[in-house]
Simulated assay, not measured.
Amino acid sequence: MYMLTVETISKQYGENNVLRNISFKVNKGTTVGIIGPNGSGKSTLLKIISGILPSTSGFVNFEGTNIQQLKQKDLARKMAVLSQNGLEPMPISVYDTVMMGRYPHLKWYQRVGAHDVEKVQEVLYLTGINHLQDQLLDTLSGGERQRVAIAKAMVQEPEILLLDEPTTYLDIGHQLNVLELVNYWKEKTALTVVMVLHDLNLASQFCEQLILLNEGEIEKIGSSNEVIQQDILEKVYETIPEIVTHPINQAPQILLTGNLH
């Protein structure tokens, strides 16, 4: 059984068809990247997968159950979602923010226990933010807040992680750091990851499967070598790419040489 099955999902706002007949399956322990131009429906698709947004037609099954039939707290025990905006810069400590990730595992009358404290401390060290645990979110940089958001998701101990453009607004060092952290977590726990990425080169390096959206439809599904091809990218992005091979991990990488128009 697949961990996630997306079957003929469509989303319509009035006469605007944002998504049309989107279908794909995700195996446990894999990383899937959703890519495509601005306005192609990437974030809308991720919201439907997470259960935040209902589809107009079609369905999403998570471990064999329709996502819309799962209770929110039951879903939160198995699925963590990082939105595009990440954590708001609020006057809440890093420690308390990360501890919120344990709440789905607590009954309504249950207080935080020794195991929860141990898990939070472990993740604070793993993500390299233990020295920030007493600081408030509104005193942190964007990159630091993103690491806190990932730590909060990690203590939730989900089986699947959904990320909406996790590297937006981050410099290249922080982009790489965040994705390497997610990849380490995935390798350690057999986590399943589905993420929307704007940067095709990062998507090619960190995702085993790519889903390329174009105007609300799937243009191509496959490995990075199957999707990152000159003719496909010219059609979807209306630009002329030069594709080279990464010297270390052999992933296809894109150099831009100009627009078609």
Rank of each mutant, 00 (worst) to 15 (best):
Y2C: 08
T5N: 00
G14R: 14
S23T: 12
K25D: 00
K25C: 03
N27I: 06
I49E: 04
G58Y: 00
F62I: 03
E63Y: 09
Q69M: 01
L70C: 08
D74I: 08
A76F: 09
L82D: 02
P89S: 00
M90A: 15
M90V: 15
P91D: 10
P91M: 12
I92F: 15
I92Q: 11
T97P: 15
L106W: 12
W108M: 11
Y109Q: 11
Q121G: 06
T127F: 11
N130A: 10
L132E: 04
D134G: 04
L136M: 11
T139R: 15
Q146D: 07
A149Y: 03
M154V: 00
V155K: 00
V155W: 06
L163M: 05
E165H: 05
E165R: 00
I172Y: 11
H174Q: 01
V178F: 04
V182M: 06
K186A: 04
V193K: 02
H198D: 05
S204H: 00
Q205M: 08
C207Y: 03
S224K: 06
E226V: 12
Q230F: 13
Q230M: 13
D231M: 12
L233V: 10
K235V: 07
Y237N: 04
L255E: 13
L256D: 12
L256C: 11
N259K: 13
L260T: 14
